[in-house]
Write a protein that binds this DNA or RNA. Structure first.
Lengths: 223, 223
DNA sequence: GTGTCCATTTCGAGG
DNA sequence: CCTCGAAGTGGACAC
């Protein structure tokens, strides 16, 4: 990885056009050739970038040095360097990578193992029940035999309600299923999503992730 | 901005749990306090990060130094530093900021100038036609006088169809408009979105951005 | 401030 | 390889 701190002016042309006036910034060049230009503010997103694969060519225009970064497509990044304050290269090697835990998939697994936590008497028919427009997270059945489609989200927002609504519309046309109820399950459900769901006759359940995890045998929790 | 290149081990706990094994990485600390940890691969997204506002406290555990970055909420980033290869501070000042041009808005402008490219005989009534739930990109009228609502997207996905559907539902209740047809226009329309649109009687049009631009007088294209 | 929608999204899974 | 949905999404604009 090469780190350059320099006063520079940047122009991007490709999917859109963008321009950065002359100012001091950090230019990060990864060993795969990708380039990103960071300011000292904002979140982690760089001001401009070019993802790999790409090539860097250097042009000299009088006192100025211009880097041109090009990809296969029409994307071009032009970096005009005025003053270079620092230019250093580091050998970081390949990263062992990130281990995650606690996303939607895990929540879905937990609920698949404990459907009764969503509603007493509920039993699992299958996970990822396939419909022509995509898989329903959980297909369950109530004590009375009615099918119940469950959409699982980490955060319950309006999109998730729309998604479940589409599934329900489709499933209710299937004579093999008959009537299908809907449950929208999430750790936190936003008020607007709750209003929309209720208006459509969809039940909302707030899921306690830690409590659910407590119900599990804790084989794979310690690592 | 402070740049530290160091062998480190990182743990994040908050919205999820994540762990990074010991390896050499770049740690970027911006002047607003935000921290991001980058490897020498992948796109611009860091492996771990903590957005501002947050506070960094330093703990010493024998030979090791541990940085603890905490936000208001439950988010915590724990960085255990083994070897520090470089640690430098730069004063970048505030960035003058990015100037963009040429996204969905431009596509909408082009289509507003050439509605007949969407369907022969179509004429523009107005751009950004306001409804209580948001603006319709283009309101047009067909040769026969029927109103046509057009939703413009760079990439046509299922969300866009939902959006147009909501607008159409609302507009069709307006006796002043009468029947309203829908056109979903995008540079590329995904198959699932096309299926949903068709199922709802919404026409799909793939837009050739470059061809449209060719129809324009090219005053403002050169700069 | 909250809500909503776009993004040069990035990232991962699955067919 | 593409397609799709999720993200600790981030960012901009409207209300």
């Amino acid at each position: 990885m090469r780190l350059v701190v320099a006063t520079c002016e940047v122009d991007y042309s490709g999917r859109l056009s963008a321009h950065l006036p002359m100012a001091k910034r950090l230019i990060m060049i990864k060993s795969d050739g990708s380039v990103s230009i960071h300011s000292d503010g904002g979140a982690y997103k760089p001001l401009n970038w070019m993802g790999a694969p790409c090539t860097l060519t250097i042009e000299r225009a009088g006192d100025d040095v211009v880097w041109r970064v090009t990809s296969k497509g029409p994307d071009t990044l032009r970096i005009a360097l005025a003053d270079v304050e620092s230019d250093q290269e580091y050998d970081l090697g390949i990263d062992p990578g990130l281990e995650k835990d606690g996303v939607e998939k895990h929540l879905q697994e937990l609920l698949a193992d404990h459907p009764e936590s969503l509603r007493p008497g509920l039993s699992l028919v299958r996970r990822e029940y396939f419909t022509p427009i995509g898989p329903v997270d959980l297909l369950c059945r109530s004590a009375t035999g009615t099918y119940v489609a469950v959409e699982v989200k980490r955060r319950g927002e309006i999109d998730g309600v729309e998604q479940l609504t589409r599934y329900l519309d489709l499933m209710r046309r299937d004579p093999l299923l008959g009537d299908v109820e809907g449950i929208f399950a999430a750790q936190v459900i936003k008020p607007q999503a709750k209003v929309l769901a209720t208006d459509r006759g969809i039940a909302c359940v707030s899921v306690d992730y830690d409590a659910l995890r407590g119900l599990e045998p804790d084989d794979d929790r310690l690592f």
